[in-house]
Write a protein that binds this DNA or RNA. Sequence first.
DNA 1: GTCCAGGGTCAAG
DNA 2: CTTGACCATGGA
Length: 273
Amino acid sequence: MKIKTHFSPENTFLNGQCFRWNKKGDYFEGIVDARLLRVEKKSEYLIIEGLDEKELPRMQHYLGFEEGLKEKERQIAQIDSVMEAAVFHGKGMHLLRQDPFETLISFIISSNNHISRIKGLVEKLAVNYGQEIDQGYYSFPGAQALARASIEDLRALGLGYRDKYVLDGAKQVAQGKVDLASLYSLNTSLGIKELEKIKGVGKKVASCVLLFAFGKGDSFPVDTWIKKALTTHYPEEISKYPDVDTFLSEYFGKEAGLAQQYLFHYMRTGRKE
DNA sequence: GTCCAGGGTCAAG
DNA sequence: CTTGACCATGGA
């Protein structure tokens, strides 16, 4: 499978939106919906291994292919000099549309945690509660499977105090108390409210789930790195608005979520001061 | 050894 | 409504 695109695996898989993609030499390896995939960029072409042709549309949807993405990139770069640098650093970034439950649990784990460690914990959940789909490769468990875990076992994996939050999320989804599929038809603020019914899920975690799984492009997660960006680059701009949320939605515009991801990736890996 | 991380909860003011 | 201690863990 071969697609001509300016998609950047580096800036898409290693920007902190997903935790089950790894760079192996010159290709990237990831597990998507119980399937092991290998992706390589060769000049203008993206080569995907492990995929039938009939599954290409679904994969393109997962990979965040959409009309006008390049235009969005240019639009964001025109916001100011910081965003211009951020877009230059993250060229070819896509927002993925990941599995909702996996994204929910992953970002419950993410709170007050390092990305490298989040990846390790997500992997442990897959190994212990998922299914082996290839030698040494495991799918992420569904809600029912994960809901059967005990607090003690989860704690033993190294989840820390988030063990009970992970279990609450799995149980509420498994029991239908939280209907993830219903979130597709809710707007961002209602979606945040619904997700906050789960313990350990606040505004930031909910925003990540809506942006990285449900494609809610106006969702703008504010974490420690974004807070740092706001205080270093935008203190005087923010003061022109009644509050920070108004600033975020009005200043960064319709594609605020994508702008946020460029900014996050830039703050974490791209700045040289 | 210290600092910190894609934060959230809970109690106190 | 806002503030701050506290929370487990291990990579840097």
